[in-house]
Design a protein around this nucleic acid. Structure first.
Length: 420
RNA sequence: GGGGAGGUGGCUGAGCGGCUGAAAGCGCCCGCCUGCUAAGCGGGUGAGGGGCGUUAAACCCCUCCGGGGGUUCGAAUCCCCCCCUUCCCGCCA
């Protein structure tokens, strides 16, 4: 959320920032109007209340009739003003939750996919002396997917992994967590998958994107990503500057309702209502956030490199930089069987946008004022598409798949997935 | 599901109608003391908003003791509703 003061003082810049993202700007004008009214009213109410205090303070005991009459009148003025002010403040605060985070100045302008800027490509796309198959065909040969039964049990957009498939997924998850915790310095968190509404508001998933989330009886939401519980770990807290940066990694299942609405990627292990993901989250000072963002992105890249997958890194244009995001890279892995790039990681820095919503602050040093931390997160990595890229990249003519070396210790030393 | 306890500043924890933005302790900051450290001594130390200020400080005002209503001239303190935490019993894994 943006501070009201910023909207007040830099309304044109804020609106321009929203326009660049393709976000509506009318809410800014509405907020400005409401705020102007609220400020005027606040002045009146405050001076009436100051008068009330001045008169009521020294009374101590029984005020005279004249005093009483005057005080009663003041009280009414204060009460009425306060009620109107309360309404205005509520409306302003509700609107503020819908104002997007303008992108960082280094983010290129653009409206969509075509405007995202490739900043790096790593690895050569795998070459084959046969026609490489898409992962769902490879998987069918290996007997590791069961989409039909998943649909029977849960409906469309669910998958079942079986045998070596289930094991490979677990191996990927465990290995990713091990790299993050043992090499990259992240502390692992295993959080709840159900969260309160406030947690969803904290990360910016609510109120604007309520339709995208699974809402369960009892008022809780199924997390769309581990970002939600992990970012909210420190909500309403004041951190010590010496603790920063804080780095967490978490594996969770992720649940997305909207994943089904698009009508694309209906085939294969690609876009699901439920999927696995390893997520990294960092909390930093404002001074460090951009470099920490680069660092986290590198950590995600490391995972892809170690697996031997080729990928590209895209700097998202303003139009593809999400509601809460300040700046974002997407990592896309090459899937040679489908001959397309698959998004496996999205690394974002939020500035203090989430920290304001979740009220996560820190004290820079003993005599300084509290400040909001900056938050950063990124997938490291999303499982289904990483899984697909492994199958498609390391498939063999005979239908088997060579398991990347880094995963073999997690597969009991197994070197290949064999058909049958 | 039944019954109890509780939500106060960075933390612990008093307060139970006006003298309380809030005792005390801890922590932290400044100074004294000390060969250094520790201890000791003295002082200071909540957050948010508005005014003012050519956006630093000072100064003034308002708000804030889980949230929202109410009683009252006046509420952290009394009443009502809600949220959250916690304990005991029951139930289930």
């Amino acid at each position: 959320m943006l501070p009201l003061q910023r909207i007040r003082e830099e309304s044109d810049a804020v609106k321009e920032g929203l326009r660049r993202k393709g976000e509506p700007t009318d809410c800014v004008d509405t907020i400005l109007e409401l705020d102007a009214t609220a400020r005027r009213l606040r002045g009146e109410v405050e001076s009436a209340r100051a008068e009330q205090k001045r008169q009521s303070g020294p009374v101590r005991g029984k005020p005279s009739d004249e005093q009483l009459a005057q005080l009663t009148e003041l009280k009414q003025r204060v009460q009425e003003g306060d009620a109107r002010l309360g309404e205005l403040d509520t409306r302003i605060n509700d609107l503020l939750l819908y104002v997007a985070n303008p992108a960082h100045e280094s983010v290129p302008y653009g409206q969509g996919d075509a405007d995202n800027v490739p900043v790096a490509t790593w690895g050569k796309p795998a070459s084959f002396d046969f026609d490489p198959l898409p992962h769902y065909d490879i998987g069918a040969g290996l007997g590791i997917f069961d989409f039909e039964r998943a649909a029977k049990i849960s409906g469309a957009r669910f998958a079942i992994l079986k045998g070596d498939g289930a094991r490979l997924e677990r191996a990927l998850i465990t290995w990713m967590l091990d790299v993050a915790t043992q090499e990259h310095g992240y502390t692992e968190i295993l959080p709840p998958y159900l969260v309160r509404r406030e947690a969803m508001v904290g990360t910016g998933n609510l109120p604007k994107f309520e339709d995208d989330a699974f809402h369960v009886d009892g008022g809780l939401f199924l997390i769309p990503t581990a970002e939600v519980p992990v970012t909210n770990l420190y909500r309403e807290e004041i951190l010590d500057a010496t603790q920063l940066p804080i780095a967490h990694v978490a594996y969770t299942a992720c649940f997305r309702l909207e994943a089904g609405a698009a009508g694309k990627d209906t085939r294969g292990y690609l876009r699901l209502h439920q999927f696995d993901k390893v997520e990294m989250v960092r909390f930093t000072t404002p001074e460090q956030s951009l470099e920490q963002f680069e660092l986290l992105t590198q950590h995600a890249e490391t995972i892809l490199r170690r697996l031997g997958l080729s990928y590209r890194k895209l700097l998202m244009c303003t139009g593809d930089t999400g509601f809460a995001q300040w700046k974002k890279y997407d990592l896309e892995v090459w899937a040679p069987g489908m001959r397309r790039w698959l998004e496996v990681s999205s690394c974002s820095v939020f500035g203090d946008f989430q920290a304001r919503r979740a009220n996560i602050r820190y004290r820079p040093s003993a005599n300084e004022k509290l400040r909001f931390v900056h938050t950063i997160n990124g997938s490291g990595l999303a499982l289904p598409r990483t899984f697909d890229a492994v199958l498609e990249t390391f498939q063999q003519r005979d239908g088997s798949v060579v398991i990347p070396e880094v995963l073999r210790p997690y597969m009991g030393g197994q070197e290949r997935l064999l058909p049958g």
